[in-house]
Design a protein around this nucleic acid. Structure first.
Length: 698
RNA sequence: GGGCAAGUAACUCAGCGGCAGAGUACUGCGCUUACAUCGCAGGAGUCACAGGUUCAAAUCCUGUCUUGCCCACCA
């Protein structure tokens, strides 16, 4: 680096070049890294992170970029500390999401998956996966992730499929997996069942219809029920009231004549009914409501399915309504009731309706034959692991989300009626397993389980899982019990729940709403170092990051500052014989004797900074660490020390200058890997081949 | 309905008992042995509100308001 070098650092030129060198070096893999004796925990040799596998349909968003940065900081820090590190990457087949994407492509040609048939369709999905499935991994490379790409896994790999099969059969033999006809969440568009966790809720402005149900005796009296779903009345098999509701006491046990049908249905008393809501009398539709199904079970009521899996009314609803869509049926029901003068009143009403998390269509609850996994024992184990501190959440508050869910858990509906996924390994069953059934095995299966591989022995359990809070239950809890059930050990010790990146209004970043910021654009504009630093800088103790591009800009200026300060240092030692001092040489009395006050001060500040960064990273305080580094390097080192150096010219000062710069590069490297590595490679004295395998100051 | 979190400079946030801070934006001056993506100097704040504890509160306690997020079978 001579004086002719451009003063502005150019990440676009440097970053891809450096990444290729790293990848070629083999140091991303634990095979070429030796655990060094200097590491802080002598008993522990390895440090392992399993990358939360992004969906093959995915493209890098802010959440990925943030989480990738966090994990890479941890891995690079531990690698520098002397651990044998493994960061194992991979992708998830993402059942419904991927199937939907491929179906959409087919639709452009006017085809459905049924036109192709199962086998041909699956071939198409595999093709799609081969073509696009690794896009997101390439994007992770762009932000500098030091994953061991040679171990890249996929949740539908042959070995992974074997693991899933093994797990299914294990539970099946234990009689924890059973089949049953239950009311499930059903997406009429995706044509499959969904678990509760796969629902999202949308606010819907609708009405509360108050419908008169005439008593079946000759009294000409009636009972009024309030409902948001008038069309389902065709499937009512009772009306329920609270047992202590005085208004209806005399009616319990009597019958009403269900309008628009020729059926008579009983009035039952059930404690699940809130007296305050509506009229306190509720229509019971056991085929289309989980709550109603429970009431029906208690009172031994029949169940009549009036909505089909296609979201249309069935013949059992009555021939007048058969094959109407739900909304058409609603309209017609209300018209018919109006004609008969059975609508007492209509109120405006706002409520949350469940929608499919993959396609956004409204969910129907309907009765269907599905496979379930018993959760009582597994949940108990998962709760215990956290209560006994085998698994620790950071920040701690998130363990409440986990424990609350597990302590009120229902059996897990694990079957899906889509084609893309792991087939249930029972002859003659066409259903596939919930994607999360296989994701739950991630930390085991990627290390080779159920085979007793070397990797499994050496790298299980992993150390830290860094992930988003919205999959604490969907994924984290299920990995914990899977690890405990099959390895007798939780799959990780620490769970870091990173903040959610939101926009300035505090709303979720969303591609469909156009409120997202594309991290790839940031990398293009500011560089990967700047993007990483800017993101890490905002990881404070909050639940959310209100994303501010200013931090990324600050990151870009910071990388430039590092670049230029290094140029200055290198100019100072140009042509001089300088060797890199060791910490003990710097500390020696002989050396210290000739130091100025400024020299001593910067050395002290360096030592303090190293200590603080270490403590912060131990506690996952990435933002704080980034602030400390920024202030130390810019304020203490550049503004103060370098300015002082300009007025003092001793051999010791040059040594200190070089020493502090090199140590700073090491401390900065996990956050800002590219520019620090590229400067390190220009240092004109004996050193390691790469900064990424230097020794972390402890 | 239950829970979590946040409200400090124009914006994004640190600080979490002892003189109110940073980045960005703004103003003025400066190309000085790296850096103008910079340096120096400066303006800018009833620390949401109301009580309380304390010699001392942005910081601890209580309550209120506003905003965001999660969970929940009020049909």
């Amino acid at each position: 680096m001579d004086k002719k070098t451009s003063a502005a650092y150019n990440p676009k030129e440097t970053e891809p070049k450096i990444y290729r060198q790293w990848e070629k070096s083999g140091f991303f893999s634990p095979a070429s890294a030796k655990a060094s004796a200097g590491r802080p925990d002598k008993k522990k040799k390895t440090y392992v992170i399993a990358l939360p596998p992004p969906n093959i349909t995915g493209s890098l968003h802010m959440g990925h970029a943030l989480n990738a940065t966090i994990q890479d900081i941890l891995i690079r820090w531990k690698r520098l500390q002397g651990y044998k590190t493994l960061w194992l990457p991979g992708t998830d087949h993402a059942g419904i999401a991927t199937q939907n994407v491929v179906e959409k492509e087919l639709k452009k040609q006017g085809l459905t998956r049924h036109d192709l048939g199962r086998e041909k369709f699956l071939r198409k999905v595999w093709q799609w996966k081969e073509e696009y499935g690794n896009r997101i991994l390439d994007q992770l490379k762009q932000i500098g992730c030091s994953c061991d790409w040679s171990r890249t896994a996929f949740t539908m790999d042959k070995d992974y499929q074997k693991a899933v099969e093994e797990v299914f059969l294990h539970y099946y033999k234990k009689k924890w997996i059973y089949q049953g006809k239950r009311v499930v969440n059903w997406c009429p568009r995706c044509q499959t069942s969904l678990s509760d966790l796969e629902l999202e809720y949308k606010e819907e402005k609708t009405h509360l219809w108050f419908i008169k149900y005439p008593l079946a005796d000759k009294s000409k009296k009636h009972l009024t029920v309030a409902t948001t779903r008038p069309e389902t009345m065709l499937g009512d098999t009772a009306v329920a009231v609270n047992p202590s509701d005085k208004r209806y006491k005399t009616l319990v046990g009597k019958k009403v004549a269900l309008p628009l049908t020729n059926r008579e249905i009983p009035i039952v008393a059930d404690k699940a009914i809130e007296m305050e809501f509506g009229t306190g009398a509720v229509k019971v539709t056991p085929a289309h409501s989980m709550t109603d199904a429970e009431i029906a079970q208690r009172h031994n009521l029949p169940s009549i399915q009036v909505i089909s899996d296609k979201g249309r009314m069935t013949k059992r609803a009555s021939s007048d309504f058969a094959s109407l869509t739900v909304s058409d049926a609603r309209y017609k029901v209300i018209e018919e009731l109006k004609k008969r003068n059975l609508i007492e009143k209509i109120e405006d009403y706002v409520h949350q309706v469940p929608v499919c998390y993959r396609c956004g269509n409204k969910i129907e609850q309907l009765i269907s034959q599905q496979w379930f996994l018993k959760m009582d024992q597994l949940a108990k184990m998962a709760i215990q692991a956290v209560e006994t501190n085998q698994v620790k959440f950071h920040p701690l508050k998130w363990e409440k989300v986990y424990l609350d869910w597990l302590s009120n858990i229902k059996d897990w509906c694990i079957s899906r009626q889509i084609w893309w996924g792991h087939k249930i390994p029972i002859d003659g069953v066409d259903d596939v397993l919930d994607t999360w059934f296989s994701s739950a095995l991630w930390p085991l299966a990627i290390l080779g389980w159920p085979k007793k591989t070397k990797d499994l022995k050496e790298f299980y359990p992993t150390d830290t899982l860094s992930t988003a809070r919205d999959i604490i239950n969907l994924w984290v809890a299920r990995m914990v019990f899977s690890g405990l059930e099959f390895m007798k050990k939780a799959p990780f010790e620490n769970v870091f729940i990173h903040p959610t990146v939101v926009n300035k209004e505090g709303k979720r970043m969303s591609k469909s709403l156009g409120t997202g910021v594309d991290p790839l654009k940031l990398i293009d504009q500011y560089g990967a170092d700047a993007t990483r630093f800017g993101l890490a800088y905002q990881v404070l103790d909050n639940q959310d990051i209100k994303f501010s591009e200013d931090s990324i800009l600050a990151g870009k200026k910071f990388t430039n500052k590092i670049w230029n300060a290094s140029r200055f240092v290198l100019q100072q030692i140009e042509g001089k014989k300088i060797n890199l001092s060791t910490p003990s040489q710097i500390k020696s009395a002989k050396f210290q004797k000739n130091l100025t006050g400024a020299d001593k001060k910067i050395l002290k500040q360096l030592a303090d900074t190293a200590k603080k960064i270490n403590a912060d990273l131990e506690k996952f305080r990435f933002g704080h660490a980034a602030h400390i580094l920024y202030d130390f390097f810019w304020r203490d080192f550049c503004d103060k020390y370098i300015e002082a150096v300009k007025k003092q010219d001793t051999k010791e000062t040059k040594q200190v200058l070089v020493y502090v710069l090199t140590q700073s590069l090491i401390l900065l490297h996990p956050f800002i890997p590219f520019v620090t590595e590229s400067i390190y490679q220009k240092l004109p004295f004996k050193r390691e081949k790469f900064l990424m395998i230097e020794k972390w100051p402890i």
